[in-house]
Each structure stands twice: as C-alpha cells, then as structure tokens.
Amino acid sequence: MSGAVDLSALKERAAAPPPQAPTPPGDGAAAPAASGGTGLTPVIDVTEATFEAEVLVRSQQVPVVVDLWATWCEPCKQLSPLLEKLAHEAGGTWVLAKVDVDANPRIAQAFGVQSVPTVVAIAGGQPLADFQGAQPEPQLRQWLAAVQQATAGKLSGPPAGDGAEDEPEPEDPRFVAAEAALDEGDLSAAEAEFQKILDEEPANAEAQGAIRQVRFLARVQSVDPGAVAAADAAPNDIDAQLQAADVELYSQAPDAAFARLIGVVARSAGDDKTRVRTRLLELFELFDPAEPVVMTARRKLAAALY
C-alpha cells in the first residue's frame, strides 16, 4: 500500500523508538475463518493495517476484488450487496475485500480513487482490472468471469480444507531465534540471526526483508529527533539530509523522505551524489517495489540522475 513501510511487528519488539517519532499503524490482521471447503472467507472488511495480508498476500492465491465504498455513497448501497452475493456464490474462488475510503484514506490514495464506488481486481499483488460506479448483475458476472479467466492457472489457488481447522505449519527455529532477540530489544543479535539464515539461503525473501528493516530500525534509533529541522537549516549537509530522511520515513512520510533525497541527488555531484543515491535505493527496498510511492520516486530519481 502506498505511503507505509510496515515496521510495526519489528518495532514493537525493539528498543524504544526515537523521541517524537509517531508510531506507524500495526499489522494485526486476524486469520480468516474457513468458509465452504476453501479455507477462505469470501467477504472481508479491510483496513490499512490488514491490507497487505488480506489483499496483496491473499491475491497470490485467488483474485481479490477490492470494493472501495463510503457510507454516504448511494450507488455503493446497490453495488456492495450485489458483490457480496456473488462472492458467497463463488465459494472462495475469489475474495471480496471491502474498504471504507473515509476510514482508510491511504488505501483510496494508493488506488487513485476519484469517485466511489470503485472496484479493483488484484491478482498476484498487482491491479488487474477496475471499474467505477454501480453495475447491473449481468455485467458484474461478465467482468468477474473475465477476471477469473485471466488468472486461471496463474495463482496458487485457495488452500485445501474440509471445514476443519488446518494444522499450523511448524515454526522455523531460525526465525524463532531472531524473533526472540527482537523480543529482548536486541537488534544486533536479531540482525545476526537473520544473517545466519541468509548465509544458508541467500534468496530467502523473508529474511532479506527482515534484515533490511532491522538495520533501518537500528540506524534510525540513534538519530536526533530534531534531524528534520536541522537538515532544513543546512540543505548542503549530506549527513543531515540522510538522517532527516530516515526520521521522515520512520514517521510514515515516505513521500517527504524520498523527495528530500531526490532533491539532494539533483543538486549534488561525484561521491555525494552516489552516496545519496545508494541510500535512497536502500530505502526503496523497505517497500514492495510495485507500491505507487516507490514507483513514482524511482521515476523522479531517474529524471534527477539524467
């Protein structure tokens, strides 16, 4: 989702954050209850905190149809119940994710919503198709059939189940050790444990993402909370700009952090330009590369470089 690097799970375990830095929203998504035989709930309410798990991750299994609605929207009152009906009929072969745009403005911003209702089909973590406004049932069925046809054989499919609770997967003891270090607030030990995993499995994406976040947290905790004001007062101080960008990103303002460093890249040369560009690319890696905030910043960085 645009504008959020979710460090909450790590940050809650780590040592105290820098003073005055706002706490990002948590990611406490509850596991969905099984429905039918698929193990998926056909209709779910999604918030900014649960968007990644319930939409982006879920869309690796089945298409997720995101219904962006508002309580004051009259067409939404016609469309949403119809979508819910069709989702229940589908039995988990696709999932309806309902998003109240007033309560979750960052999700609406990420999709570039200009009016409601807006409906977006997500598959494999990427937008596939969308429409705006209420639609009659025949057109909805046709649209949904096209979405399912376009994703046939390309997703992992709903988890198998017979209505009984699935057995939980055993925890990887290597990650248990890393999480224990985080529970104790020992970021250095946590980094070392994640590094052990990467030494054994260099392509382990979970460990790669975790170690990047741990390193970022360790660095930002030593930054003066007045770093942004100090950087604004000294625009040519590279160290000050890097520290300020860390604080802005930690404070859930990635647009500001990226814009700051892109500006430094544009007006710098030589080693300074290379150093800031390298840091900016490291910050991009804290996000899903498909997030709009990152894609926009990459385009602006390319323009600043050339």
Rank of each mutant, 00 (worst) to 15 (best):
V147R: 04
G133P: 14
G124R: 10
D172Y: 05
A160K: 13
A129V: 04
P138K: 00
V120M: 09
P127A: 15
R141M: 00
V116D: 07
A164G: 14
D183C: 00
R141G: 01
G133C: 11
F131Q: 09
N104W: 13
A134V: 09
L155W: 01
F175P: 00
V176A: 13
P159A: 10
E165N: 03
S115V: 05
F111T: 02
V119G: 08
A177E: 14
P159L: 13
Q135D: 09
A129N: 08
F175R: 07
P117D: 02
R141D: 00
L155H: 03
A150L: 00
W143L: 00
V147N: 06
R106D: 06
A134M: 12
D172C: 14
V147M: 13
Q114A: 05
A129L: 06
G163D: 09
P170T: 10
D183E: 10
I107R: 07
R106T: 08
R141V: 01
P173N: 11
G112N: 00
R106W: 00
A178C: 07
A178R: 02
A146K: 03
P105G: 11
P136S: 02
V120I: 15
G153L: 07
A108S: 09
S115P: 03
P168S: 10
Q109C: 05
A152W: 06
D130M: 14
E165H: 03
E179I: 11
D172K: 05
E165D: 14
P168M: 12
P136L: 09
N104I: 10
E137S: 04
V176Y: 05
F111C: 03
D183K: 08
N104G: 11
P136C: 13
P127H: 05
Q149N: 11
D102K: 06
Q149Y: 06
G163T: 13
I122M: 15
F111P: 03
E171I: 08
P168I: 09
F111V: 07
Q109L: 10
A152E: 12
E171S: 13
A121E: 04
V120S: 03
E171R: 12
Q142V: 01
E137T: 01
E169D: 13
A146R: 00
D162Q: 08
Q132E: 13
G153V: 12
A180K: 14
P138Y: 00
P117V: 01
F175K: 08
N104Y: 15
P117Q: 01
R174P: 09
A160W: 12
L182I: 13
D162G: 15
G125A: 09
V120K: 04
A181I: 04
P159C: 14
V116L: 02
P158F: 14
A121L: 00
P158A: 15
A150K: 14
N104K: 11
I107S: 10
L128M: 06
V116I: 14
S115F: 07
Q149D: 04
Q114Y: 06
V113I: 12
N104T: 15
D162V: 10
A146L: 02
G163F: 13
I122G: 02
G161N: 15
T151L: 07
Q109E: 12
A134H: 10
R174I: 08
A129S: 14
E179F: 12
A160R: 14
G112Q: 05
